[in-house]
Design a protein around this nucleic acid. Sequence first.
DNA 1: GTTATGCATTATGTATGACTTAATAAAAAT
DNA 2: ATTTTTATTAAGTCATACATAATGCATAAC
Lengths: 235, 235
Amino acid sequence: MAINSLMEDFSSLDTSSLVDKVEAKLVQLLKDQKLNVGDSIPKELELAERLGVSRTVIREALLRLRVMGLIESKKKKGAVITSPDIFGIISKSVNPHILDQATLKEMFELRLILEIGMADFIFQRITPADIRELKKIVSKEPDATQDYLFNIEHEIAFHGKLYEITGNETLKKFQRMLLPVFDYVHHSGLLKKQVSIKRYVSHKGLVDIIENGSPEIFRNAMRNHLENHFSRLFE
Amino acid sequence: MAINSLMEDFSSLDTSSLVDKVEAKLVQLLKDQKLNVGDSIPKELELAERLGVSRTVIREALLRLRVMGLIESKKKKGAVITSPDIFGIISKSVNPHILDQATLKEMFELRLILEIGMADFIFQRITPADIRELKKIVSKEPDATQDYLFNIEHEIAFHGKLYEITGNETLKKFQRMLLPVFDYVHHSGLLKKQVSIKRYVSHKGLVDIIENGSPEIFRNAMRNHLENHFSRLFE
DNA sequence: GTTATGCATTATGTATGACTTAATAAAAAT
DNA sequence: ATTTTTATTAAGTCATACATAATGCATAAC
């Protein structure tokens, strides 16, 4: 029993640093005081005084918030609250060369999941202008013999447009984050070799379905279109 | 011509702070030198000396890397490279109270996309043990009249298990990040009121399909299962 | 010989004060 | 009234000192 309570004391040992605490306090300040985007928070010195720590600590804590995209600090004006662009922030820190291989492979999979799952949003929000643009992109589709880079570019243009059609900016940013990863994984030795470059449902086929089909049909078509990628994962 | 070169000067105007530059240099160091996870980078003072800036600047730059999850600094041992847990990092900064409404709604949509899109991975990687567990969860399914919190808990248990089955840890972390957002959006006035709580394909129905059906069938069933959410977005 | 214990060392963490720079506001000049 | 100058303010940068905690080594204990 005595040991038990001792253990509890151990587990509840506060291992967090001063900066950690200040950071938590500041985040809570943002939450509690219902501060809106654009509002400015107290000056470094004032915070330092109020929390009874040095300006150094305050600066580090504020810096963390800044890296997380919660605030933006301007000279003279102090720090103002910003609407955090999460994926903008992290896409900066998503570096295929640094991420471990397991994570990279999982992000590769994530793309496949997204493109199959987003069918309903495409059908719900597509406009005639979108369809025209898709057709324009498809009309420029290079045949397999053409320059590799040109193929990549076309891939990105087509699939990127699909993301755009969903009208979901967060999703689009997510894709932008995934792009370099996908390319990296595709060419690294991380996956099995591409067995056959059979051509499944083409981009043109997908556009036809978008125009005349349904989300259900589109999902299966997209799944088929991505078969080359899936087979490298599953077989 | 003069104007042109002037413009170039403008565009290339270096607006970045000292810390920005040091940060970039450090990231490049990680990339170039092919440093592996676990390797340690030079000490603060050494970096300060080599780059000709104060330790303060170095510390700020290192702090950024730390917030991004690229390094971890230990006393005495200096900073060591870590495998960044991206979603772990951002889920810390995903705070429904701080994110703007548009982003929140988009993240709500993101969940729907994921759960429909992940069918293939479920079917590919599911084990008999998984099916048993799913059935166990379903057997405890509360009827609609029961305690609200209990329902939520059940929802999370079931859908969380599905994510787990995909074997994609990154996806799972992503879900954990989305969870509070989803709950928040569900109850805020952000979406249209839930028109009818018709019951579509049930959890039990989904399990049956997982056992005897195919990814194609599952996708449509899941789409139907989520109809209540979709209708709040689309109608 | 192996295991504790204590001590010195080292690198990050925190504190303080001074100075630089840039943005804003106030004052002065036109 | 508008522009220019000046002063002020708060963040950015620097230097230094000390605190704290982890590591390794030396010594002591068994």
